[in-house]
Amino acid sequence: MREAGELVDINLVFGDHIISCHKVILAGRCDYFHRMFLINMLEKNSTEVVMKEINARTGILLVRYLYTGLIEITTDNAQDLLSACEMLLLGALKQDVEEFLCSHTESNNWYQL
């Protein structure tokens, strides 16, 4: 339905990329959006939310994750995903990204005390 533009009620703007979504899906899967759409914030009645802190590539991955529960974490996207997860209060995904980063960090990269 999202890809077909059916019953979408919010556009997320990541840089110059706009993704049409359903508030109920975003709010049901993400505490950040849940709070945004239920509290008397400006975005509650808006049809567009500009996500300045998240780039388009990461935004696309996150929307797909919120709709499907699936995401591919790579060395190219892990750092951006980690920052976005912190902002969006996506604790489970943040933990997955942290585990990915730990498993892909060589021991000679660790800071010695």
Rank of each mutant, 00 (worst) to 15 (best):
M87Y: 09
R64P: 11
A56K: 00
D9L: 07
C21W: 05
S107T: 02
L101K: 06
I25D: 10
A78L: 03
Q79R: 15
T74D: 03
V13N: 03
D16L: 07
I10F: 02
C30T: 04
H34V: 02
K52Q: 15
Q95G: 04
C85S: 02
D31G: 01
L62P: 00
E48N: 11
M51G: 11
Q112M: 07
F14N: 06
L12V: 04
S46T: 02
M41N: 14
D16C: 06
L62N: 08
V24W: 01
V97L: 05
L88A: 05
S107R: 04
D16N: 12
T58I: 15
V97N: 04
T75K: 01
I54Y: 00
Q79M: 10
V24M: 06
H34F: 12
L89D: 05
A27M: 03
I54H: 04
Q112E: 08
H22K: 12
V97S: 05
G15M: 05
M51K: 13
Y32Q: 07
R35D: 04
T75Y: 03
A92G: 13
N40D: 05
A92N: 13
R64Y: 06
A56V: 05
N55L: 00
K94R: 08
I18N: 02
K94V: 08
K44W: 06
V8I: 07
V50H: 12
D96R: 06
I25K: 00
F33Q: 02
V13Q: 07
N45C: 11
L70W: 09
Q95M: 14
V63H: 04
C85P: 00
Y65T: 04
H34K: 15
K94Q: 13
D9P: 01
N108V: 02
E6K: 06
G5E: 01
I73Q: 11
V49S: 13
D9T: 05
I54V: 13
I18Y: 01
H22L: 10
Q112T: 08
G28H: 12
G5C: 04
N45T: 14
C85V: 05
L7G: 02
T75W: 01
E6F: 05
L93F: 01
T74E: 01
N108F: 12
Y65P: 14
E72R: 03
R64H: 14
V50K: 06
Q112N: 10
M36K: 15
L81K: 12
G28I: 12
Q112C: 09
I18E: 03
